[in-house]
């Protein structure tokens, strides 16, 4: 089954060619915030196609703001976001939704909504003028349910599922959108550790098997290092480190960004870095260091 599904999404992601040297998305000098309060200013970032990029940083560092700004969920004060080389502001919203799927931090579901009904909403940007579902829509819904392992409870209401199953159902909704790029805003929050890994494994699988470009905000640095190809570290609205986990996960970065001292070891199985914190750095020292 799995091998059958590989083709469709990968085709989409390879047929579209961007102007910006293989970047799936790019933010250029974006200035974004909530209302008058600017969180990020003059920030630029390119998201490379086919990679998992993790946005990490302490609370209030602007990682979710960056994700939302790039996903047009927050209005940019200035700057430009490109999707496959095209300016987002010049695209119709439904056109964006056919190329970029976003799972926000706390989506709500009405009582009684079943997994199948939820996933069906993912076809909204593809549906015809009367918004009726056609054959390809049903196929995409079935594929999304299958990929996320939620097919067996397609008819169950969302509130009867475990946290991990529910999160997989939400991811299935974004997969039904059949986009080459997927944004996830803290997809593991409120989940226990088993379900966190379940979700991250799914993310890794979507990247490997479907060739999806994935950008996610993560809280847990070790998980980011484990699952992402690239970590972008934010602090106070600027990018302070950007690169492969092994380059980014250094004592220096951890001290500067999170005010902690930590040993960095390498996971023998994955070869990825893992940090073990052992002390907190006094705030003043760090503040002065800036």
């Amino acid at each position: 089954m799995g091998s059958d599904n590989k083709t469709s999404l990968r085709e989409i992601s390879t047929t579209i060619t961007g102007k910006t040297r293989g970047a799936a998305m790019a933010a250029e000098n974006v200035r974004v915030g909530y209302g008058e309060k600017i969180i990020l200013s003059e920030l630029s970032l390119e998201i490379r196609r086919g990679e998992i990029t993790a946005l990490v940083g302490p609370n209030g560092s602007g990682k979710s703001t960056l994700l939302k700004g790039m996903a047009r969920l927050l209005k940019l004060h200035s700057g430009t976001v490109f999707l496959e080389g095209e300016e987002l502001t010049k695209m119709a919203n439904s056109e964006i939704a056919r190329r970029l799927a976003v799972l926000p931090q706390a989506p709500t579901a009405p009582a009684g909504l079943t997994v199948g009904e939820l996933v069906e909403q993912g076809r909204y940007p593809h549906a015809g003028p009367m918004r009726m579902l056609r054959k390809q829509d049903h196929e995409a819904i079935g594929r999304a349910l299958e990929l996320t392992g939620t097919l067996e409870f397609a008819n169950r209401p969302l509130e009867n599922l475990s946290g991990g199953e529910r999160q997989r159902a939400w991811i299935a909704l974004t997969l039904a959108q059949a986009t080459p790029v997927l944004f996830l805003d803290e997809p593991t929050t409120f989940l226990d550790i088993g379900h966190q890994l379940e979700v991250l494994e799914l993310v890794g699988q979507l990247n490997r098997e479907q060739g999806m470009t994935i950008v996610m905000v993560l809280h847990d640095l070790n998980q980011a290092a484990q699952y992402a190809h690239r970590m972008v570290v934010l602090r106070k609205g600027s990018i302070v480190a950007d690169g492969a986990p092994a380059e980014v996960m250094t004592g220096e970065v951890l001290e500067k960004v999170f005010n902690i001292k930590a040993h960095i070891v390498t996971d023998p199985a994955s070869g990825r870095p893992v940090f073990l914190p052992y002390a907190v750095v006094k705030n003043e020292e760090v503040g002065r260091g800036q």
Partner: peptide, 12 residues
């Protein structure tokens, strides 16, 4: 019903 961000993300 799924929230403003989700709806906007789906093209509304």
């Amino acid at each position: 019903q799924l929230g403003d961000d989700m709806a906007e993300g789906l093209g509304l």
